[in-house]
Design a protein around this nucleic acid. Structure first.
Lengths: 242, 242
DNA sequence: TCATCTCCATGATGTAGATCAATTCTCTGT
DNA sequence: ACAGAGAATTGATCTACATCATGGAGATGA
């Protein structure tokens, strides 16, 4: 008797619902095939497992198929700094390109499936597929501009503005991959949010309560429903987009 | 009678003292020649002149030959956020790669000479010179990690730690290009520093006074001398380098 | 050379958010 | 099913830095 086959999840780039996000839109069909051959799919990580650690030598970047990742680095004195949260369809790991060493540790916030893209193979490929090279640089540049927005947020904005901004960011990113932009589960803890936004847990918690009292959101622990999207977005000050 | 020739400043990459910083170290001599042909040298900007404005369509990145540049973006409500200071040998302008539009305005803080590197030509070139492509990505990745360090600084550190960190950063960057790491002229105003570090002018000014009183530095307006480099660096908390 | 402007310094006061503390709720593992 | 640890909420107090206000020192320009 045959062992029953497990139901198969998407195992190539063509079938992956994320490809429009994490892959060059302009790539030819044949090109996608070549990229597909290079990508390694690892078995899902469970919560708190790491993809790589700060100090690891850099060899790959990673795309998220499902789940979520927190990136953080550790100071000399042992304090952590969360540098980013990554959601499905997003790419992380380029903090290692500068000097071949990861600056961050990347850890799964929940059960998470990632695609590994070996960087040397990727470089070979992108020499012959110009759109791939450009797309990759655009993704890096997007990381730069989003980091710079965070800098503005931390330098100039109040606790309420910072948290409203994070909620809007997550909402927008989920919306872009066709998930509900108004009902979602926050994968990270209040402590992680506070760490990321330069606030204490207590302040984060109070702001969530205040937002709930003002009718902006309804939330039960990590489950969030945004009731007043435009009201929330009015709280946010973004660098003017052109 | 011939018009007298002006004394010529370095006008190619071979002669430029900055090349070790802004160009791939591993590039072959012939490759450098090809890059050299692509780079445009414009006449020096004077103080307060802009290289590009937020909203401008992106076509080039820029390297600084001499002088200094401040990058900033403007929020909806008109407030500025300084996102970076760039010194000789450093490259700026990739904030435009993501969607072909600059997010920042770049302005000269003093008389400044820049090299313009047209991005499309650069892309062609880097397809055939693999080290160039990699080096460029490394420079972008370095921007990412330095932005992330600033994020940590803004999220976790006190006014004194932030300013100490900026002074150390400038000192290190000047040192790397063989200028004095302990005596230099800050090209930016106290207001710019405050804006960059999420502090008010008054706080910046007070911290400078306190640093002077504690014997860390001696300073007269923008002229700074670091008297106790190790003391200052003890104030700084950096993400652990691997 | 005088008037205006910008930059910097320093003092007095106010406040957002940190810190400290206590309680409840929710997972985790045995 | 229970013990213990971690996550979240809420309150009371404290403090680093913002804000407001003033004066001086260099630049800039008619």
């Amino acid at each position: 008797m045959q062992a029953p086959k497990l139901s198969i999840k998407p195992t190539n780039c063509h079938d992956c619902r994320m490809s429009a996000l994490c892959l060059p839109l302009a790539m030819e069909y044949g090109d996608l095939d070549r990229l597909d051959k290079v990508i390694q799919r690892t078995k899902p990580l469970h919560k708190n497992q790491s993809v790589f650690y700060a100090g690891d030598s850099f060899s790959s970047v990673y795309a998220i198929r499902s789940g979520s990742i927190k990136a953080y680095c550790v100071s000399d004195d042992g304090t952590e700094q969360v540098t980013g949260f990554y959601l499905p369809g997003e790419i992380f790991g380029w903090d290692g390109i500068a000097d071949e060493t990861h600056k961050n540790t990347a850890v799964a916030l929940e059960t998470t499936a990632v695609c590994e893209i070996p960087f040397n193979k990727f470089e070979e490929l992108s020499a012959s597929i110009p759109t791939l090279q450009r797309h990759f640089m655009q993704l890096m540049a997007r990381e730069i501009t989003s980091d710079q927005q965070l800098i503005t947020l931390l330098g100039k904005n109040s606790a309420e503005e910072r948290i409203a901004s994070l909620l809007m960011s997550i909402s927008g990113r989920l919306g872009r991959r066709k998930l509900s932009p108004t009902r979602f589960r926050l994968p990270m803890s209040r402590a992680d949010i506070g760490n990321y936004l330069g606030l204490t847990v207590e302040t984060v918690s109070r702001v969530f309560s205040r937002f709930q009292a003002s009718g902006y959101i309804k939330c039960d622990k990590k489950e969030v429903e945004i009731l007043n999207l435009s009201g929330l977005s009015n709280l946010v000050q973004t660098c003017a987009e052109a």
